[in-house]
């Protein structure tokens, strides 16, 4: 369902050889002006804002097709924002029903820091035909979340920063800030570390996990792929996240009686 060899994360070496073979579509999820300067060779540009302006399946289908993606095209996404924006794009394609999507293991800056190939040419791609086979099992809505969050087997993970979580969060959710997920030079920690982190937090392999973040499911999208990278079977992204939850006036809790914001040097 995701990535070549069934892996949701693609390493730089593999991507480079696939690029040589011309057998992959790489999506650069940065702003247009950044992409125009330089990017990974042969990659196409899909700024996240462009996707988010309308991410209905019909629109996403058109986008995918215009980027030259058919049902069989392996897709790799990257960004320069911890992998969070790329995660949101990858997840959206997966939700559409695309079976072979993965994230590049590093950000564009990390790629460049290593001295790997970049290019400023924009490839011309022909439109392809893609089908729609939505995968509702990877998406959580507010109603669904509210219905299942008390279930013993369900774990809701808030991927925002600690202070935002302390200030307000969905009752019963636990906090794993998105920064926890990365290693120093990759968008995600090695598998054994991620597994250990989750084990420490009491998240068992058979739990149903729902991730959310501030507004559009980017940071929580990264968490979705972190869990997928260690083969967690049942993960859903609450893609409309806390912004919608608040707007719907769903219950919120706060860590009371402490002035934690004043410890921040921001």
């Amino acid at each position: 369902m995701c990535g070549l060899n069934g892996k949701p994360i693609m390493d730089a070496d593999s991507l480079r050889s696939l690029l040589r073979d011309n057998s992959i579509r790489v999506i650069d999820v940065r702003r247009k002006e950044d992409y125009k300067k330089d990017h990974i060779p042969k990659s196409v540009n899909l700024p996240l804002a462009d996707l988010l302006s309308d991410d209905t399946p019909e629109r996403v289908l058109k986008l995918a097709q215009s980027l030259g993606i058919d049902d069989q095209t392996p897709v790799v996404a990257y960004d320069d924002t911890f992998g969070a924006l790329a995660s949101r794009v990858a997840w959206t394609l997966q939700y559409l029903g695309h079976r072979d999507v993965s994230l590049l293991e590093m950000t564009y800056t990390q790629w460049k820091t290593l001295g790997l190939e970049t290019d400023s040419n924009e490839p011309s791609v022909g439109t392809k035909t893609h089908s729609i086979a939505l995968k509702p099992e990877i998406m959580a809505t507010a109603d669904y979340l509210e219905k299942v969050k008390e279930n013993k087997n369900v774990i809701v993970i808030d991927n925002r920063e600690r202070l935002n979580y302390l200030e307000q969060h969905i009752p019963g959710s636990i906090n794993i800030p998105y920064r926890t997920l990365a290693s120093e030079d990759k968008i995600l920690r090695p598998k054994d570390e991620l597994k250990r982190l989750l084990q420490n937090r009491g998240i068992s392999d058979n739990a149903e996990v729902i991730t959310y973040c501030g507004s559009v499911g980017t940071l929580s999208g990264l968490a979705y792929y972190a869990l997928k990278s260690i083969d967690h079977p049942n993960v859903k992204l609450y893609v409309r996240s806390f912004k919608e939850w608040k707007n719907l006036n769903k219950p919120i809790v706060k860590q009371e009686n402490a002035d934690y914001w004043d410890l921040s040097a921001e």
């Binding site: 920063e161 600690r162 202070l163 800030p177 926890t180 934690y260």
Partner: peptide, 20 residues
């Protein structure tokens, strides 16, 4: 960033503290 509040605190006894 990963486990605390994005800031660290330098104490009066030359320690560094990570809160919350």
């Amino acid at each position: 960033e990963a486990f605390s509040i994005g800031s660290a605190h330098v104490s009066t006894r030359q320690n560094v503290q990570l809160h919350w």
